[in-house]
């Protein structure tokens, strides 16, 4: 199963996982974690980035692997970072 972890940089300097998004049955992504964060993520989606920058195309959990792949482009500030796609 493929998944991505999203880390929050805390005041003390540590990073903790605040959400985990994984591909479930049917190829749809399911996110678990901080309630408001996950709700906003699923409701508002994320942007799609390409080599030339960001498009206004939005991706949602139903977009499956593409959504997972784009998480690390959306969360890269340091305060919120997304991992590479991991496998278990």
């Amino acid at each position: 199963m493929q998944f991505v972890e999203i880390y929050k940089l805390k005041t003390g300097g540590e990073q903790e996982v605040i959400a985990r998004c994984e591909i479930g049955d049917g190829g749809i992504v399911k996110c678990l974690g901080d309630k408001i964060f996950v709700s906003n993520l699923e409701k508002e989606g994320i942007f799609e980035y390409s080599e030339s920058g960001r498009s206004e195309t939005k991706l949602f959990p139903k977009d499956g692997l593409k959504f997972l792949e784009q998480l690390s482009y959306n969360f890269k500030s340091g305060y919120l970072n997304a991992s590479d796609i991991k496998n278990i």
Binding site: G13, Q15, N81, A82, D84
Partner: peptide
């Protein structure tokens, strides 16, 4: 180097 960017060679690096 922060986790996330550290492992992703496609994304910009960020350090605390």
């Amino acid at each position: 180097k922060l986790i996330g960017n550290a492992n992703n060679k496609r994304i910009n690096e960020v350090f605390l």
